[in-house]
């Protein structure tokens, strides 16, 4: 086997390294900087150049080697390269080749080009280890332009009513994707600290984001009438929100496709926007690899592998320690 599934995570015996391990190991190849993929405590890390700044920001002093997309590195008897996954800036699928057999670990990915992250590229392989966070036919994403129009319309309506617009989104990826798509001429854009820190890291690596104002304890919300405020889902529930009395609230997440979840978050609005592939996206991506063996992980694994088996694939499940957790959007800060 090119890759094996061990207690610590996905392992390559030919190169003696792990991919996105969840326990401390000597050598870790990391698909992207989200907390459920890039963990503390590895001796050495390898990631893309574009993922590195965020990883350093989140993990502090680590021994991190970087590689450009598409560049082949030899590790032991394995040939390794990173390819865009379209999930967040710097996110990668990891291709591992041993003795002519190619396996690809998808990490988190989406197939639509969000105009901000490096666009997803299918990588031909024999075996494909794919996430399936939204691996049910009930998930079908609204086109990005339509969601952007919805957000603008909501913002404009709130401005007309003299209210703030507080939009909850994950601090890494989703928040910046939204920022990059906003019409900044509509009014001031304020940000929660966790988002602003990530903005700073991404701006420093040359990504273009509109100007934002960091909300600090000294910020007087009244100075920014009609503002759109980007907040973390955590920040929205807490006392931080008190400085924006009467605000209209919204969340941007793939889970917002479900009315039950939308209502449970008890925000005024839910915008359907995900950095993961929807049902169509997953199926298209899998076909595009040409792989016959598919391993599914992260999400509706048993349903999705049964479906793939019926479609003629040799499909299996990779158990992770965090299976199913993403069912509960209250915890999705860690699973994006």
């Amino acid at each position: 086997m090119v890759l094996e599934f061990r207690r610590q995570g996905i392992y390559c015996p030919a190169g003696d390294f792990f991919i996105d391990p969840w326990r401390p190991v000597d050598r870790a190849l990391i698909t992207h900087g989200h907390a459920d993929h890039a963990r503390d405590g590895m001796k050495r890390y390898l990631a893309t150049e574009a993922a590195a700044p965020v990883m350093r920001h989140r993990l502090g002093q680590i021994d991190l080697e970087t590689t450009p997309y598409g560049h082949e590195t030899r590790i032991g008897d394995a040939k390794v390269s990173f390819h865009p996954a379209g999930h967040v800036p710097g996110s990668a699928q990891i291709r591992v080749e041993v003795a002519g057999e190619v396996w690809v670990v998808s990490g988190d990915y989406k197939t639509v080009d969000d105009g901000f992250s490096e666009a997803f590229e299918p990588v031909p392989c024999h075996a494909f280890i794919t996430e399936c966070t939204f691996g049910l036919p009930a998930f079908s994403w609204t086109p990005q332009q339509q969601v952007t129009d919805e957000i603008h319309a909501w913002w404009a309506k709130n401005q007309a009513e003299g209210r703030f617009s507080v939009l909850g989104a994950y601090a890494l990826g989703k928040a910046q994707r939204i920022l990059a798509s906003l019409d900044a001429s509509m009014g001031p854009i304020l940000t929660h600290g966790a988002i602003e820190n990530t903005n700073a890291v991404l701006r420093a690596q040359g990504l273009s984001l509109p100007d934002t104002i960091h909300v600090t304890p000294d910020t007087n919300a009244k100075d920014y009438p009609g503002a759109l405020v980007l907040a973390t889902p955590g920040g929205m529930g807490g006392p931080w929100m008190r400085r924006f009395p009467g605000a209209s609230t919204a969340f941007a997440s793939g889970w917002m496709a479900l009315r039950g979840v939308r209502r449970r978050r008890s925000a005024d609005r839910g915008f359907v926007m995900s950095d993961h592939a929807d049902w169509e996206g997953l199926n298209t991506a899998i076909k595009a690899t040409g792989a016959e063996r598919i391993f599914v992980t992260h999400g509706y694994t048993s349903v999705f592998s049964r479906w793939l088996t019926e479609q003629g694939f040799d499909a299996g499940i990779v158990e992770t320690e965090f299976e199913g957790e993403n069912l509960d959007p209250a915890a999705d800060e860690v699973v994006e």
Binding site: L136, P137, G260
Partner: peptide, 9 residues
């Protein structure tokens, strides 16, 4: 597959 979606939705 439809039936699997139902309890989740």
């Amino acid at each position: 597959l439809f039936e699997e979606c139902y309890p989740i939705v």
